[in-house]
């Protein structure tokens, strides 16, 4: 009974994860920044050598400072008390997210760096 439940759970979760990854991993890596259900901005993550992008997102508590560079996207500063969003560090995988619940700011990454080339020929 328990093993059956575990198997069913793993299969369902695994398949859902694959479907989600297929739908969001296509295209170049883009960071989407939301306040609640409103999209504030969408930036393509800079390539190596390109200058970083700074963005200030106005949330319920104040401004959240977001930095996007060749390493990925991170929350540099936040007015929330827990600072969990800042401490979560840099994210760059498709589907990764940074959520600041008190300030109602969400950053989600769509696309992947692996998708930069249409084909590789030797």
């Amino acid at each position: 009974m328990d093993r059956g439940l575990l198997l069913l759970a793993l299969l369902t979760i695994g398949l859902t994860w694959i479907v989600i990854q297929q739908s969001i991993a296509a295209g170049p890596p883009v960071a989407e920044i939301y306040h609640g259900d409103t999209m504030l901005a969408s930036y393509r993550l800079p390539e190596s050598g390109q200058p970083p992008i700074y963005f200030e997102a106005e949330g319920d508590l104040g401004l959240s400072e977001i930095i996007m560079d060749a390493d990925g996207v991170r929350m540099a500063a936040s007015p929330c008390s827990s600072q969990r969003c800042v401490l979560s560090g840099t994210h760059h995988h498709a589907g990764d997210l940074i959520a600041c619940v008190p300030n109602k700011i969400l950053i989600i990454i769509r696309g992947s760096r692996d998708d930069r080339y249409d084909a590789v020929v030797e």
Partner: peptide, 18 residues
């Protein structure tokens, strides 16, 4: 947050929950 994109992060965390 009111943003369905939040659920993209749910599957890997459910695997850890298992």
């Amino acid at each position: 947050i009111h943003q369905p994109a939040l659920y993209y992060a749910l599957p890997p965390l459910l695997l850890l929950s298992c």
